[in-house]
Protein backbone atom coordinates (compact mmCIF):
# COMPACT_ATOMS: atom_id res chain seq x y z
CA UNK A 1 0.00 0.00 0.00
CA UNK A 2 1.40 3.42 -0.93
CA UNK A 3 2.04 5.62 2.07
CA UNK A 4 3.71 8.63 0.59
CA UNK A 5 4.10 9.80 -2.97
CA UNK A 6 5.13 12.88 -4.89
CA UNK A 7 4.27 13.99 -8.38
CA UNK A 8 6.56 16.31 -10.35
CA UNK A 9 7.83 17.86 -7.15
CA UNK A 10 9.82 20.99 -7.88
CA UNK A 11 11.77 23.27 -5.56
CA UNK A 12 13.58 26.36 -6.73
CA UNK A 13 15.86 28.56 -4.62
CA UNK A 14 16.16 31.89 -6.44
CA UNK A 15 17.44 30.48 -9.70
CA UNK A 16 18.80 27.13 -8.51
CA UNK A 17 16.51 24.16 -8.99
CA UNK A 18 17.29 21.95 -6.00
CA UNK A 19 14.61 19.35 -6.66
CA UNK A 20 13.47 18.98 -10.23
CA UNK A 21 10.17 17.27 -11.03
CA UNK A 22 10.68 14.28 -8.80
CA UNK A 23 7.93 11.67 -8.73
CA UNK A 24 8.22 8.74 -6.37
CA UNK A 25 6.20 6.49 -4.10
CA UNK A 26 6.95 4.71 -0.86
CA UNK A 27 5.11 1.66 0.40
CA UNK A 28 4.31 0.44 3.85
CA UNK A 29 7.12 -1.65 5.30
CA UNK A 30 9.56 -0.56 2.65
CA UNK A 31 13.07 0.70 3.31
CA UNK A 32 13.98 3.05 0.51
CA UNK A 33 17.46 4.40 -0.08
CA UNK A 34 17.81 7.96 -1.32
CA UNK A 35 21.25 8.47 -2.78
CA UNK A 36 23.11 10.96 -4.89
CA UNK A 37 26.28 13.04 -4.84
CA UNK A 38 26.72 16.02 -2.49
CA UNK A 39 24.27 18.77 -3.24
CA UNK A 40 22.02 16.47 -5.27
CA UNK A 41 18.97 17.63 -3.38
CA UNK A 42 18.42 14.73 -0.98
CA UNK A 43 18.03 16.84 2.13
CA UNK A 44 15.91 19.33 0.24
CA UNK A 45 13.68 16.48 -0.88
CA UNK A 46 13.18 15.37 2.72
CA UNK A 47 12.54 18.98 3.73
CA UNK A 48 9.82 19.15 1.12
CA UNK A 49 7.98 16.00 2.11
CA UNK A 50 8.27 16.78 5.81
CA UNK A 51 6.98 20.32 5.30
CA UNK A 52 10.06 22.27 6.38
CA UNK A 53 10.08 24.08 3.06
CA UNK A 54 7.25 24.49 0.60
CA UNK A 55 7.63 23.30 -2.98
CA UNK A 56 7.53 25.65 -5.95
CA UNK A 57 5.33 23.23 -7.85
CA UNK A 58 4.15 19.63 -7.79
CA UNK A 59 2.15 17.58 -5.37
CA UNK A 60 2.76 15.49 -2.26
CA UNK A 61 0.29 12.85 -1.13
CA UNK A 62 0.22 10.99 2.15
CA UNK A 63 -2.16 8.05 2.53
CA UNK A 64 -4.16 9.41 -0.37
CA UNK A 65 -4.43 12.91 1.05
CA UNK A 66 -2.94 16.01 -0.56
CA UNK A 67 -0.44 17.45 1.93
CA UNK A 68 1.58 19.59 -0.47
CA UNK A 69 1.23 22.80 1.51
CA UNK A 70 0.43 21.43 4.94
CA UNK A 71 2.64 22.90 7.69
CA UNK A 72 5.36 20.68 9.15
CA UNK A 73 3.81 20.26 12.57
CA UNK A 74 0.59 18.94 11.08
CA UNK A 75 2.47 16.43 8.98
CA UNK A 76 4.31 15.36 12.12
CA UNK A 77 0.96 14.68 13.76
CA UNK A 78 -0.26 12.71 10.75
CA UNK A 79 2.71 10.36 11.05
CA UNK A 80 5.61 11.73 9.06
CA UNK A 81 8.85 11.91 11.02
CA UNK A 82 12.44 12.62 10.17
CA UNK A 83 15.90 13.10 11.60
CA UNK A 84 18.32 15.87 10.74
CA UNK A 85 21.70 15.69 9.13
CA UNK A 86 23.00 18.10 11.74
CA UNK A 87 21.83 16.82 15.08
CA UNK A 88 20.94 19.34 17.72
CA UNK A 89 19.77 17.89 21.02
CA UNK A 90 17.55 20.30 22.91
CA UNK A 91 19.56 22.10 25.55
CA UNK A 92 18.11 22.32 29.02
CA UNK A 93 16.24 19.06 28.49
CA UNK A 94 17.41 15.62 29.58
CA UNK A 95 17.63 12.64 27.25
CA UNK A 96 14.15 11.38 28.02
CA UNK A 97 12.69 14.88 27.88
CA UNK A 98 14.17 15.33 24.42
CA UNK A 99 12.29 12.27 23.30
CA UNK A 100 9.10 13.36 25.06
CA UNK A 101 8.62 16.40 22.81
CA UNK A 102 7.31 14.36 19.88
CA UNK A 103 5.02 12.30 22.11
CA UNK A 104 3.56 15.43 23.65
CA UNK A 105 3.00 17.47 20.53
CA UNK A 106 2.75 15.02 17.67
CA UNK A 107 0.75 12.42 19.58
CA UNK A 108 -0.93 14.83 21.98
CA UNK A 109 -0.04 12.82 25.07
CA UNK A 110 -0.07 14.25 28.58
CA UNK A 111 3.26 14.67 30.32
CA UNK A 112 3.04 11.42 32.32
CA UNK A 113 2.04 9.27 29.37
CA UNK A 114 4.61 11.01 27.20
CA UNK A 115 7.30 10.20 29.70
CA UNK A 116 6.34 6.54 29.69
CA UNK A 117 6.32 6.53 25.89
CA UNK A 118 9.73 8.15 25.81
CA UNK A 119 11.17 5.73 28.35
CA UNK A 120 9.91 2.80 26.33
CA UNK A 121 11.41 4.23 23.17
CA UNK A 122 14.75 4.73 24.86
CA UNK A 123 14.67 1.16 26.05
CA UNK A 124 13.70 -0.08 22.60
CA UNK A 125 16.74 1.68 21.16
CA UNK A 126 19.05 0.57 23.92
CA UNK A 127 19.46 3.96 25.58
CA UNK A 128 19.93 3.63 29.32
CA UNK A 129 20.12 6.19 32.12
CA UNK A 130 17.41 8.30 30.54
CA UNK A 131 17.70 11.28 32.89
CA UNK A 132 21.15 12.07 31.59
CA UNK A 133 22.15 15.46 30.27
CA UNK A 134 22.39 15.18 26.47
CA UNK A 135 25.92 16.60 26.58
CA UNK A 136 27.04 13.26 28.05
CA UNK A 137 25.85 11.08 25.18
CA UNK A 138 28.24 9.24 22.89
CA UNK A 139 27.90 9.74 19.14
CA UNK A 140 26.00 6.49 18.72
CA UNK A 141 23.70 7.41 21.59
CA UNK A 142 23.08 10.82 20.08
CA UNK A 143 22.08 9.21 16.81
CA UNK A 144 19.80 6.81 18.63
CA UNK A 145 18.26 9.66 20.55
CA UNK A 146 17.60 11.44 17.29
CA UNK A 147 15.82 8.35 16.00
CA UNK A 148 13.91 7.99 19.25
CA UNK A 149 12.81 11.60 18.95
CA UNK A 150 11.48 10.93 15.48
CA UNK A 151 9.77 7.72 16.62
CA UNK A 152 8.07 9.63 19.40
CA UNK A 153 5.81 11.08 16.72
CA UNK A 154 4.51 7.53 16.31
CA UNK A 155 5.20 7.81 12.59
CA UNK A 156 4.19 5.66 9.68
CA UNK A 157 6.82 7.21 7.45
CA UNK A 158 10.32 7.95 8.71
CA UNK A 159 13.20 9.69 6.96
CA UNK A 160 16.74 9.28 8.21
CA UNK A 161 19.17 11.89 6.86
CA UNK A 162 22.72 10.49 7.10
CA UNK A 163 22.31 8.98 10.56
CA UNK A 164 25.34 6.74 10.05
CA UNK A 165 27.77 9.61 9.45
CA UNK A 166 30.54 9.65 12.04
CA UNK A 167 30.01 6.10 13.28
CA UNK A 168 32.62 3.35 13.15
CA UNK A 169 31.96 -0.06 11.55
CA UNK A 170 30.64 -1.76 14.69
CA UNK A 171 28.38 1.10 15.56
CA UNK A 172 27.11 1.23 11.99
CA UNK A 173 26.19 -2.44 12.19
CA UNK A 174 24.47 -1.93 15.48
CA UNK A 175 22.43 0.92 14.04
CA UNK A 176 21.56 -0.93 10.83
CA UNK A 177 20.18 -3.80 12.88
CA UNK A 178 18.24 -1.42 15.07
CA UNK A 179 16.69 0.40 12.14
CA UNK A 180 15.71 -2.80 10.43
CA UNK A 181 14.14 -4.17 13.59
CA UNK A 182 12.16 -0.99 14.17
CA UNK A 183 10.99 -0.82 10.60
CA UNK A 184 9.66 -4.36 10.74
CA UNK A 185 8.09 -4.10 14.17
CA UNK A 186 6.32 -0.87 13.38
CA UNK A 187 5.61 -1.58 9.74
CA UNK A 188 7.29 1.73 8.91
CA UNK A 189 8.09 3.10 5.51
CA UNK A 190 11.66 4.31 5.92
CA UNK A 191 13.59 6.66 3.65
CA UNK A 192 17.34 6.46 4.22
CA UNK A 193 19.83 9.00 2.93
CA UNK A 194 23.34 7.63 3.17
CA UNK A 195 26.67 8.16 1.46
CA UNK A 196 28.16 4.82 2.47
CA UNK A 197 26.99 2.42 -0.21
CA UNK A 198 27.58 -0.62 1.98
CA UNK A 199 24.88 0.62 4.31
CA UNK A 200 22.49 1.22 1.45
CA UNK A 201 23.08 -2.24 0.04
CA UNK A 202 22.57 -3.92 3.37
CA UNK A 203 19.62 -1.92 4.57
CA UNK A 204 17.39 -0.99 1.67
CA UNK A 205 14.92 -2.82 -0.51
CA UNK A 206 15.03 -0.25 -3.24
CA UNK A 207 16.83 3.03 -3.98
CA UNK A 208 16.17 6.21 -5.87
CA UNK A 209 19.07 8.24 -7.21
CA UNK A 210 19.05 12.01 -7.37
CA UNK A 211 21.47 14.08 -9.36
CA UNK A 212 21.29 17.86 -9.54
CA UNK A 213 17.72 17.63 -8.28
CA UNK A 214 16.57 15.10 -10.84
CA UNK A 215 15.59 11.52 -10.22
CA UNK A 216 17.87 9.64 -12.61
CA UNK A 217 17.39 6.02 -11.57
CA UNK A 218 15.24 3.81 -9.41
CA UNK A 219 15.30 0.12 -8.46
CA UNK A 220 17.08 -2.41 -6.25
CA UNK A 221 20.54 -1.28 -5.26
CA UNK A 222 22.45 -3.93 -7.20
CA UNK A 223 20.65 -2.99 -10.36
CA UNK A 224 20.95 0.74 -9.92
CA UNK A 225 24.63 0.57 -9.04
CA UNK A 226 25.32 -0.86 -12.50
CA UNK A 227 23.37 1.89 -14.24
CA UNK A 228 25.87 3.90 -16.35
CA UNK A 229 24.10 7.19 -15.64
CA UNK A 230 24.40 6.65 -11.93
CA UNK A 231 28.06 5.71 -12.18
CA UNK A 232 28.70 8.81 -14.20
CA UNK A 233 26.84 11.01 -11.73
CA UNK A 234 29.02 9.77 -8.92
CA UNK A 235 32.24 9.96 -10.90
CA UNK A 236 31.30 13.39 -12.21
CA UNK A 237 30.62 14.47 -8.65
CA UNK A 238 33.94 13.13 -7.48
CA UNK A 239 35.99 14.60 -10.32
Amino acid sequence: MTKLSTTDLLCRFSGLVAVNKVSFAMDEGEILGIIGPNGAGKTTFINLVSGIIMPTAGRIEYKGRDITYLPAHERARMGIARTYQLIHPLENLSLVENVMVGAIFAQGQGLKTARRTAEELCEELGLSDVDRDTARLSILETKKMEIARALANDPEVLFLDEVMAGLNADETHDLIATIRRIAVERRLAVGVVEHVMGVIRELTHRVIVLEAGELIAEGPYDEVSRNPRVIEAYLGGAA
Binding site: F13, G15, A18
Partner: peptide, 14 residues
Protein backbone atom coordinates in the same frame (compact mmCIF):
# COMPACT_ATOMS: atom_id res chain seq x y z
CA UNK B 1 29.59 26.81 -4.57
CA UNK B 2 27.68 27.58 -7.72
CA UNK B 3 24.53 27.47 -5.68
CA UNK B 4 25.81 30.04 -3.27
CA UNK B 5 26.71 32.45 -6.03
CA UNK B 6 23.33 31.96 -7.57
CA UNK B 7 21.68 32.68 -4.26
CA UNK B 8 23.67 35.86 -3.84
CA UNK B 9 22.81 36.99 -7.31
CA UNK B 10 19.14 36.45 -6.61
CA UNK B 11 19.39 38.34 -3.39
CA UNK B 12 21.20 41.13 -5.13
CA UNK B 13 18.52 41.44 -7.76
CA UNK B 14 15.85 41.48 -5.10
Amino acid sequence: MAAKQNGNKGKHMA
